[in-house]
């Protein structure tokens, strides 16, 4: 009986499903953070499997900064319709009223429009557990985070004081006001995600596939001109380039890569060959070495 027939992907799938069921059974008001990208797509696909033939016993929630790619929003609405799920969309209306934007407000933008909006939504809707699609291979401080990651009543993460997590025995006990962030994809790598998408034929937003898109080049990064709100410097003219995105976020903060990959197979082939890790496409992570840890402590996913 020593030989196992499960492949690496089957093991990862089983682990994620186990985690989701544990949350459904242990928390009164769980929610799944849905950010529309490939990791969220995999997470949602796994949730559909975990509770089949029932629907997942929790709603999806999207924190909309107002600066997402237009194609992301249409893909989001299409996906929710296809699965027949409940979607909550939350936005920091105060931030919108103050005109907070990614150009003038730097890292405050992320804090106000993403982190604060998420924290406010968690409190308002009294969610006690929230799934996120983060993986430990993305970034160094994520590598040290638990699968069931405790947040105190102020939604703060204390990395030096985490609950020990042994075997598959997750401690789900919390007091009123406290919550747990749950990461069912903790042990997946970027390549695992792509292989699984390929194996399971999971639909993705078209932005992942190469196409002619209008971009401007800034500090070596290609930024897509998704709408008229992107301020252009004098003489800066958007050019049509064959590009795609390895990660999706707010369009002014998410750099494209030049690529001819128009099929899933080609994307996976490119991913295997590429020599730059995916978060490099996210401008907010490059500010300083420990910036992600700080953001996470404050409540960022």
């Amino acid at each position: 009986m020593r030989e196992r027939s499960l492949t690496h992907l089957q093991r990862l799938e089983a682990e994620a499903i186990y985690i989701m069921r544990e949350v459904a059974a242990s928390f009164a008001r769980p929610v799944m953070l849905y950010s529309i990208g490939k990791d969220s797509s995999v997470m949602l696909h796994l949730a559909m499997k975990a509770f089949y033939p029932a629907k997942p016993p929790f709603p999806l929630m999207h924190i909309d900064t107002g600066w997402k790619f237009r194609e992301m929003i249409s893909f989001r609405d299409e996906t929710v319709r296809r699965f027949g799920l409940d979607l909550i969309v939350e936005q920091n209306s105060e931030g919108v009223a103050q005109g907070i934007n990614p150009f003038e407000h730097g890292s405050n933008y992320t804090q106000i429009m993403k982190t604060d909006a998420l924290k406010a939504a968690m409190v308002k809707r009294r969610f006690d557990a929230a799934f996120g699609g983060a993986r430990r291979d993305e970034e160094k401080s994520r590598a040290k985070e638990r699968v069931f990651s405790f947040r105190n009543a102020a939604q703060i993460w204390d990395p030096k004081n985490q609950r020990p997590e042994l075997w598959n025995l997750y401690n789900t006990r919390i007091r009123p006001g406290e919550s747990i962030r749950v990461f069912p994809l903790s042990n997946w790598t970027e390549l695992d995600i792509w292989q699984y998408i390929l194996a399971e034929d999971i639909p993705l937003p078209p932005l992942y596939f190469a196409a002619e898109r209008p971009v401007v080049e800034r500090d070596g990064q290609l930024i897509m001109v998704d709408d008229g709100r992107l301020p252009l410097s004098p003489g800066e003219v958007p050019q049509q380039r064959m590009v795609r995105f390895r990660t999706l976020g707010c369009y002014p903060l998410t750099a494209a890569v030049e690529s001819g990959a128009t099929t899933l197979q080609e994307i996976v082939a490119e991913t295997i060959a590429v020599r730059s890790s995916e978060r490099a496409g996210r401008l907010i992570d490059r500010e300083q070495g420990a910036s992600m840890e700080r953001k996470k402590r404050e409540g960022y996913f």
């Binding site: 970034e139 160094k140 401080s141 994520r142 590598a143 040290k144 990395p159 030096k160 070495g289 420990a290 840890e293 700080r294």
Partner: peptide
């Protein structure tokens, strides 16, 4: 430094 991810550790 590749694996010591937390600020205090670094």
């Amino acid at each position: 430094l590749l694996v010591d991810g937390l600020e205090a550790e670094r």
